[in-house]
Amino acid sequence: MFSAEFWTMGLCWTASLLASYWQLFPIGIAGRCDVYPRSETPRNFRTRLVCIVTGTTSGLGAAAAFALSKEGFCVVLVGLSSELLSKAMEDIREQNKDAHLKGFVVDLSSFRSILEFKSSLEKWLMDSDMHSSIQLLINNEGILATSARPTAEGYDQMMGTNYLGAFFLTKLLLPLLKTSPVGSRIVNVTSFTHRAVFGAQINEDIVTGKCFFRSKEYPCARIYQYSKCKLEFPPSMFSRLSLNWRPLSHAVL
């Protein structure tokens, strides 16, 4: 109760949440919000549109997967547990018998697991006689760890899952998004907690989370805020991380 992390989550996060609601207040008064126009499937398109949603075993991910299945998407569910993925797909099919679903077990904190997912996804698209493209990618996966856990590459697990993994997955799937015969979109789900980040000095140690390993106590709240923040990095930093890509901007959902 006397730790800095407790008060960060109790005070700063509460203030950040209230600030988010305050920003949405005018929209509620107006009674409308801006939405993206929907693209119709071309007549010569031989299959249904494909959507990938990460973190679909519960919460926002599960709700998004269900809603998109109702919209007629072929939804690819990505999660860390095969049992929870099966349960999520079973729940969706109980509510929507016409749902077209496919599940993949992926550890977004592991670059190797993400690479294996890309290969498996491309093979599934080919074997299913699907168009080799994706129309929607929703990066929803996120964790809040309370203890320091390094990834296979030596990065902090929370930064690796919530931030680095999402961008690495996006980079790998960009070719499939670009080959879509209709407009494709990327949605990066973030959190109101990013509002609690002030005066961040961004460097390689922050991106990888390695600097937090040197702390006496694991600053879980601060790391979570960073992992959900819109950060801009020098391109040279990613060559040192062996990631040949540049970051996209997060979009609040």
Rank of each mutant, 00 (worst) to 15 (best):
L164A: 12
I138L: 08
S147A: 12
I143A: 03
K210L: 07
T161Y: 12
F198H: 14
L144I: 08
G142F: 07
G142K: 05
A145V: 05
Q201Y: 06
I143R: 11
K171H: 14
T190L: 10
L136A: 02
G154K: 13
R214N: 07
S184F: 04
P175W: 07
I206L: 12
V207D: 00
G165P: 01
M159K: 08
E141Y: 11
V197W: 03
E204F: 05
I138D: 00
L176S: 02
G142T: 01
G165M: 05
T161A: 08
G199A: 04
A166C: 15
T190P: 01
L121F: 09
N162G: 05
K171V: 00
G199I: 00
S191G: 12
G165I: 07
P181H: 09
K123V: 10
F192A: 11
Q157A: 14
M126I: 12
I138V: 15
F167I: 09
S120V: 01
S180D: 08
P175I: 13
T146P: 00
E153F: 10
S132M: 15
K171C: 10
L172Y: 06
L125F: 06
T161R: 06
M158T: 15
V207C: 06
S180K: 06
F212V: 07
F168Q: 14
R185V: 04
M158E: 09
N203V: 11
G199D: 11
R149W: 11
V207R: 05
S128P: 03
L137P: 04
I143T: 15
M158W: 03
K216D: 12
K171R: 15
I202A: 13
I186S: 03
F117A: 03
L177T: 13
L172F: 05
M130H: 08
S128G: 11
G160K: 03
